[in-house]
């Protein structure tokens, strides 16, 4: 049992989360949780609601209902800029690099959302390419460099929970390998992560648990040690 002074085991709990874009109802009651230091994935086909789930956690959808408990605080009624300050870092699918900012301006733009983020030196140690390209315009970087930049900038801000959307999409295998190493080393540093991925082979060895999402609902959860024997089921679900 955890003692009274130990932090909650659970970092994020999402309960009955619904999200709407105008008339369309995208999420139909998403339920899942993430423990501290855990890496979980949201797996599903295109349009199943994975990206919307991340956006709805951050309040970046026009309307949402339900409950998002981050570190024991209810975030569902908060303005988006307050939610980030609960300690959440977001790496969007389209990477969200600002074209009118240099790479280094992109890297240092985000406000701190918690204590103990990585220093600029540590980040450049992890991503040496970004050091070389720091004066370049953000969107002049290659796809892989932009992805690294999008990840790197949320390591500086002291976020405890990282939401990583489709980080390997459209990238060369060698860069995907690098990103895999980065995720592993972040896990060792104690970061909690939610990965939305199309590339199951990339996330299978990294994640502790996999949530399967379909039609805006979580339909199943597969822990790491059951992945092997449920492979056929998984492939059927993902349609690969």
């Amino acid at each position: 049992m955890t003692g009274a002074f130990e932090p909650h085991q659970e970092l994020l709990r999402v309960t009955d989360l619904h999200a709407f874009y105008g008339e369309s109802h995208i999420l139909h009651g998403v339920d899942f949780h993430v423990d501290r230091g855990e890496v979980v994935t949201l797996l599903g086909r295109n349009g199943s609601g994975r990206t919307t789930t991340l956006k709805a956690i951050l309040g970046l959808v026009p309307r949402r209902t339900g409950s998002v408990m981050m570190d024991g605080r209810e975030a569902v009624a908060m303005a988006p800029h307050r939610i980030a300050h609960l300690g959440i870092g977001y790496c969007p699918e389209e990477r969200g690099i600002f074209a009118s900012l240099s790479a280094e301006e992109n890297l240092t733009l985000l406000p701190k959302v918690g204590s103990g983020g990585m220093t600029l030196d540590e980040i450049y140690g992890m991503f040496p390419n970004l050091l070389e390209r720091r004066k370049s315009q953000g969107t002049r970087l290659s796809g892989g460099e932009q992805q690294m930049l999008a990840m790197a900038r949320i390591l500086r801000i002291g976020a405890r929970l990282l939401l990583l959307d489709e980080m390997t999409e459209g990238l060369a295998p060698v860069i995907v390998q690098t990103l895999g190493r980065v995720v592993r080393s972040l896990k060792e540093k104690g970061f909690t992560m939610i990965l939305v991925e199309q590339n199951f082979r990339f996330v299978a060895p990294l994640a502790d648990r996999h949530y399967l999402i379909e039609h805006g609902r979580i339909v199943d959860m597969i822990p790491k040690d059951e992945v092997g024997k449920r492979m056929d089921e998984l492939h059927g679900f993902l349609g690969v």
């Binding site: 970046l60 800029h81 939610i83 300050h85 074209a99 009118s100 985000l110």
Partner: peptide
């Protein structure tokens, strides 16, 4: 100017 909603999601 480029992406106001994303910037807000970053905590600004």
């Amino acid at each position: 100017t480029e992406k106001p909603l994303l910037l807000q999601g970053f905590g600004v």
